[in-house]
Amino acid sequence: MTGLDNLYREIIMEHYKNPRNKGLVENQDYRLFRIKNPSCGDDITIQTLVVDGIIKDCRHIGHGCSISMASASVLTELMIGKSVEEAEKIADNYLNMVANKEYDENIDLEEAEVFSGVRQFPARIKCASIAWVAFKDTLK
């Protein structure tokens, strides 16, 4: 596999083409956070519904590169059903992984593991992080 194929893994392309949980809902109970990256034009909004400390729903909308879009889709699928505490731990771990920082390999990142290839592309760390950073802000 060349470096680039490490980045554009099949699962990522699959999520890019068929994003899960896409589109926001009109509901005051959801918490919403939007991040724009003016240098590349990425624009992502994450919407999260937390009930009794459990993430009941997580949605996204926006536009950007395949990595940012797919990582938003994977994020939402992975987070639904998790407790807020678990979700934060996973998100931090994921963000460390894509930034090529130390991270805990024992924490199960499930499908988000496929973004490990981003580590070889420092210029793309932001792309893989933006949805996850926005997600964390919806929990605050």
């Binding site: 680039l4 980045l7 003016p38 590349c40 950007g64 792309c127």
Partner: peptide, 20 residues
């Protein structure tokens, strides 16, 4: 999206710029 494309050029050592 231009940020996907630009990575391909970077890999080939062709320096371009992508974005706004």
């Amino acid at each position: 999206p231009s940020h996907d494309a630009i990575t391909f050029f970077a890999e080939k050592k062709v320096a371009l710029r992508a974005g706004q």
